[in-house]
Simulated scan of single mutants.
Amino acid sequence: MMLPMCVMPRCIRISGKPGILKNLSRVFQKNMTNNTPEVMMWPALQAAQRQRGQTGKNPNVGAALWRHGRLVDVVATGDGGRPHAESQLNILPGDVLAVTLEPCAHEGETPACARLVADARPSKVYVGCLDPDPRTSGHGLEIMKEAGISVQAGICEHKARHVMAGFLTRMIHQRPHVRLKLAMTRDGRSALADGRSQWITGFEARQHGHLLRAEADAIMVGAATFIQDQPTLTCRLGLSGRDPEIFVLSGREEISSLPKNVQILGTSGGQQDLSQILRQLAQEGIGNLLVESGGRLAASLLQAELVDELYCYQSDLLLGANARSALGALKDQELLLPKGMIVKERRQLGQDQLTRYVVER
Rank of each mutant, 00 (worst) to 15 (best):
M5W: 09
V7N: 09
R13E: 07
R13V: 05
I14R: 03
I20R: 15
I20Y: 11
I20F: 12
Q29L: 12
K30S: 12
N34S: 14
V39S: 09
M40W: 05
M40K: 14
M41T: 00
A44Q: 08
L45P: 12
G56H: 02
N58V: 08
N58D: 15
P59Q: 06
W66R: 01
W66V: 00
L71V: 03
D73N: 08
V75C: 10
A76V: 02
T77L: 07
D79Q: 14
A85S: 10
Q88C: 14
Q88E: 11
P93Y: 09
G94V: 12
D95S: 04
V99K: 01
T100I: 03
E102K: 10
A105D: 00
A105W: 01
A118L: 03
R121T: 15
S123V: 14
S123C: 13
V127C: 09
L130Q: 13
L130F: 13
P132C: 06
T136D: 01
S137C: 12
H139T: 01
H139K: 15
G140K: 00
L141S: 09
E146K: 00
S150C: 14
A153K: 04
C156F: 09
C156W: 07
E157L: 04
K159W: 05
A160V: 05
A160Q: 11
A165W: 01
G166P: 08
F167C: 00
V178C: 06
V178G: 04
L182N: 05
A183K: 03
L192W: 08
Q198P: 07
E204G: 15
A205E: 04
A205W: 04
G209V: 10
L211R: 10
A214Y: 05
A216N: 03
D217Q: 03
M220W: 07
G222T: 04
A224K: 11
R236W: 03
D243C: 09
D243T: 02
F247D: 00
V248M: 06
V248G: 05
E253A: 12
E253D: 06
E254T: 08
L258R: 05
L258F: 12
N261D: 14
Q263D: 14
S268I: 08
D273G: 11
I277C: 06
G287E: 01
N288P: 15
A299G: 05
L301K: 02
L302Y: 02
V307W: 01
Q314P: 13
L318D: 15
A329Q: 13
A329S: 15
L330M: 07
L336W: 04
L336T: 10
L337Y: 11
V343Q: 13
D352S: 09
R356P: 14
